[in-house]
């Protein structure tokens, strides 16, 4: 029917309320392949909650989520992940007692569907191992590949979080403040990686980010959430110029 290809991700009137509090309120928005959309908004605006609805950690109280035109509102997070929705979490969310390499390998292994292999030692799966090592090299963690995740410094944990997402090679990347808490010299590594993904035209990136310089250098488009509602949507320059954004965004920065 549609002449235009379906959006990679589309939400229609997507809402969730916790008790009486509406955290995401009827957000309708489409994200297309080959674009990087930044979602901005003050603390508590509902950005992470919106991500949770898209990747399935939370169930919507109303509205729908479409992935390439198919309704995925009722699917479990694992199904969505296998379909090609990848998520990096704002609060680092790793396997703390497994090594860096194992953390990444688990993601590669999931993508390749090797999880149910019971009878071969994992060391035999050299393809998994090499790919995991490759990704670890990209984020600059090679020197720490055998260290347990919980022993990593915070910045490295953030890098590992990103490495796990890269290992999933999803069609849709959901980055939730990937550089938060990183030291200034670590940030460019992650931004370069995101930039590299962006070069691949069939990938879709949605990025929640507070740092305005990051947003303006990477994003093709900015979506502003405020009190759970989508209040602005457009190209970076015009969105940044809107009074409501100045107010909402600078309001948060002053907190």
């Amino acid at each position: 029917m549609a002449t235009q290809p379906a959006a990679a991700i589309e939400t229609r009137d997507l809402s969730i309320s916790f008790g009486g509090h509406v955290a995401v309120n009827a957000v309708s928005c489409a994200f297309h392949a080959g674009t990087l959309t930044a979602i901005v908004g003050p603390n508590g605006a509902g950005k992470t909650t919106y991500f949770n609805l898209i990747s399935g950690q939370l169930r919507a109280t109303a509205g729908r989520v479409l992935f390439k035109g198919a309704d995925i509102t009722a699917l479990a997070p694992s199904r969505r992940a296998r379909a090609g929705l990848g998520r990096a979490f704002q609060l680092t969310n790793l396997f703390p007692n497994l090594s860096v390499h194992e953390n990444v390998r688990l993601a590669v292994q999931s993508r390749l569907g090797r999880g149910l292999d019971l009878l071969r030692t994992w060391t035999r799966h050299s393809a998994l191992i090499e790919e995991a090592d490759d990704i670890i090299r990209q984020v600059g963690l090679s020197a720490r590949r055998t260290l347990r995740a919980r022993l990593l410094p915070h910045g490295d944990q953030r890098k590992l979080e990103v490495a796990i997402l890269l290992a999933l090679r999803p069609e849709v990347f959901l980055f939730d403040e990937p550089t938060a808490g990183m030291s200034v010299d670590e940030v460019p590594v992650i931004l370069d990686l995101i930039h590299a993904i962006k070069g691949n035209r069939d990938r879709t990136i949605i990025l929640v980010e507070h740092k305005m310089d990051v947003v303006s250098s990477l994003a093709d488009r900015i979506v502003v959430l405020h009190n759970g509602e989508l209040v602005a949507d457009g190209d970076p320059a015009s969105v940044m110029a809107l009074p409501i954004v100045q107010e909402a965004y600078l309001g948060a920065a002053n907190v």
């Binding site: 950690q57 694992s78 790793l94 007692n97 292994q109 090797r114 019971l118 994992w122 998994l128």
Partner: peptide, 29 residues
């Protein structure tokens, strides 16, 4: 010993460590 050192065994450990994340990686825990 083979099972715990297989890819499957690593998933079991991942579930023990962080079931939420294992699910987010695509494993039906």
């Amino acid at each position: 010993l083979r099972i715990v050192n297989s890819p499957f065994g690593r998933v079991l450990q991942a579930i023990r460590e962080n079931e939420f994340r294992a699910e987010a990686l695509g494993y039906r825990t």
